[in-house]
Amino acid sequence: MLNSMRALAIALTMAGTAVSAWAQPYPNRPIKLVVPYATGGGVDIVARSVAEGLRKLLPQPIVVENRPGAGGNVAFAFVAKSDPDGYTILMGANAIVVNRFLYTTLPYDPRELTPLALVGTVPMVLLATQSFPATNAREAVALMKAKPGAFNFGSGGRGTAEHLAYELLKSRTGVDAVHVPYKGGAAVLTDLIAGQVQLMFTNQLAAMPYLKSGQLKGLGLTGAERSPQLPQLPTMIEQDVPDFVMTVWWGVLGPTGIPRPVMAQINQAVNAALATPELKARLESLGAQPRPGTPESFADFLAKESAIWSAVIQAAKITAE
């Protein structure tokens, strides 16, 4: 009797330890943050900054892993197909929304990815070469309408944010220019400064040094309101370009099916990191605004983006395949 009692007690303690090991709170091993682009790009730098911020808040290390390729689809598919346990998450950006309209076949189902936390947004700037006759977006639109096909619009490649912003402008105003894709946004700048290419949208961070030095001029900002770093630059909407808001954004997503408490935990951790002065300052130095929120508000944000881009991309018949 006593023996069997003891055996039961031992069995119970063992079961107890087993359960507690199983139910050890998330996270109990390192978390992998997948970056869909090569090291050193904007998304990579944001991911590494966020990972650094999370490192101080979570008991487990965050490992940043770059999986570039196929416009981000390699990484999206990798995360979409991984276990929904919260240990593999993704630093997503605009491509999450636009790729499903750009590519006829995707190696994953967009529903396999669930938004967890929006990190931040940065507006784009409509840049013009110094010799361009217009000084603001309103004049530029009028000029392009008067001379269809006469001006060159640069971009960092087909389907990039720079290109899509131009397509958005086209669909909102009906202007017609010649699109010249380059390999990466930096490559356009020399031709833009030299005036071979007259206009380009690029994100505020990349635009700032050229605006400050006067090598290029800013005609308009694509954000919903003016930017604190460039308070004198009017938005596109202020300049009567209807319904023209476009931002480059970053946000954390994960495979669909992560348990609710884990989702909430990741969301809170990202928000807490965004509230720290270090990460705030770092994002500001990138020209970005932190956008803390709930997974639901991030999902709404994505739904709105989808509505805009499905219309623009389908109207412009852009494909990446």
Partner: peptide, 14 residues
């Protein structure tokens, strides 16, 4: 360039 910008240094003519 990314590292410089993270430290708030903006390379350019200035």
């Amino acid at each position: 360039l990314g590292a410089l910008m993270l430290h708030g240094v903006r390379p350019g003519p200035m």
